[in-house]
Design a binder for these strands. Structure first.
Lengths: 242, 242
DNA sequence: CGCAAGTTTGACGTACATCAAGTAGTGTGG
DNA sequence: CCACACTACTTGATGTACGTCAAACTTGCG
């Protein structure tokens, strides 16, 4: 394999930061902290804003915060020396990221589109967890969900074809977007390619093929409607009829 | 991609089970419970034995236990409908597995070689965690380490070549075996292939090439000596000089 | 509007998969 | 202890899904 020079430009301009959260931030940005856990989270959260392609944190940075997406979208990725890039995950409003319960972040986190994020100091979270069982459970469940998603990613990357990967990706995104078959793809084709372990051209061709097969409708590069869910699911689950 | 009919035979014979642990089981099977955490773990652990290829649990089973390897080796895997298999991870003596803090196990766990394993009921672990901060920390750190390893697996599967994957695998195994360059590979070539997202033939050819390049020595299919660590590390880190 | 960035499409190349023999190892029973 | 069978591994010849290179097209922002 020769170098893949498809590196996204990375600007590092945090546009505003470290204002005390003026609104409750637990349930996807809704108002009213119902339970003590939400209140605790709210009290330690700081709102941050990032421009497109700005880094929230870099690989190797001390992992002192956990983050939650309020609006926009975040990607976590690693770039090899010759430019090959792998995206570990995408995070949409409501998702937590940066859950590296280690000394350092293992991946870089960047804004895919202009994003608003709340950061929670890990030291505080650990402290709360010592007394509030709810916090302990929340952290465990977040970590566990993240592990589960990453393991599914492994199966996909290790054993599925390009079309299967795409179907898997679209369906995953649908599930996270309140099961709405009209999808908004905030990320570029390059991001999708680097997430699925493919090239931008293969992703583009794959989408075109789905369009030709009437499995999806495409309306602009960032709007997709899933039309034949069953066919896509069969593909995504590797029930190969290739 | 057509069907890959390289499925390992799966016998489901647990050879002996559910005896109360007669010795302390925290630190890789050593004796003497030093701290209260080890004692707590010891008191709730049950020793289980599994024959080669026997299942510890299956994908979809309720996730009621967490396990620790005492001797032998374990693999966790998922098999797609047409026989394609992906191995999520290998577990060696001292490693914990089955850390699905969800209702069900997402993968099947099987013994690679005859194995002795200790099982800890999750309900008990949760209970202990509520009062003992140490248990909480242990569980978080285990989950986090597992997530970290899985994320590295993702990068490898998504963006590395066959030779890079092999180098990565060998070095990873070395790190987990007390950094001894004389490696014992308990798993078959098929297991390695299904872990690295390759075929058995590609793994075999890759090992032969390393041998020809004098990067490793091979003495029987399950004994490897890493000779040029730097060259292997350069490969594993994707510092491509392909 | 006009340009630059992003996307699609086509022609061609290649790393790895597949198919097919052969060659160790490993355990079993005579 | 050796013959046998069986499984695991290796090696070679060939195929193909996806990558690479290149050019046209589309989109969206200044």
């Amino acid at each position: 394999m020769t170098a893949m020079l498809q590196i996204a430009p990375i600007a590092n301009d945090k546009i505003s930061a470290r204002t005390r959260a003026p609104w409750p931030v637990l349930e996807g940005g809704k108002s009213m902290p119902a339970d003590p856990l939400a209140a605790a989270l709210q009290s330690i959260g700081a709102v941050l804003k990032f421009k497109r392609n700005a880094a929230v944190f870099n690989e190797g940075d001390p992992a002192r915060h956990v983050y939650k997406v309020i609006s926009g979208a975040i990607r976590t990725c690693r770039v090899l020396m010759d430019g090959r890039r792998q995206i570990a995950d995408f995070y949409l409003p409501g998702d937590f990221f940066g859950l590296d319960w280690q000394s350092e972040h293992g991946f870089t986190a960047e804004a895919i589109a202009d994003a608003v994020v709340v950061s929670y100091p890990r030291s505080q979270l650990d402290l709360i967890a010592e007394t509030q069982i709810g916090m302990q459970r929340l952290l465990m469940s977040l970590l566990s969900k993240s592990l589960c998603a990453t393991q599914n990613h492994v199966v996909m990357l290790g054993r599925q074809t390009a079309q299967e990967r795409l179907a898997w990706f679209l369906l995953n995104l649908m599930e996270r977007s309140d099961d709405n078959a009209d999808l908004d793809l905030p990320m570029s084709r390059l991001d999708i390619a680097d997430y699925l372990g493919l090239t931008i051209e293969t992703v583009s061709r794959g989408i075109s093929q789905f369009k030709r097969q009437h499995l999806i409708d495409v309306c602009g590069a960032h709007k997709v409607t899933l039309k034949k869910l069953e066919a896509l699911e069969a593909l995504a689950n590797g029930e190969s009829e290739i």
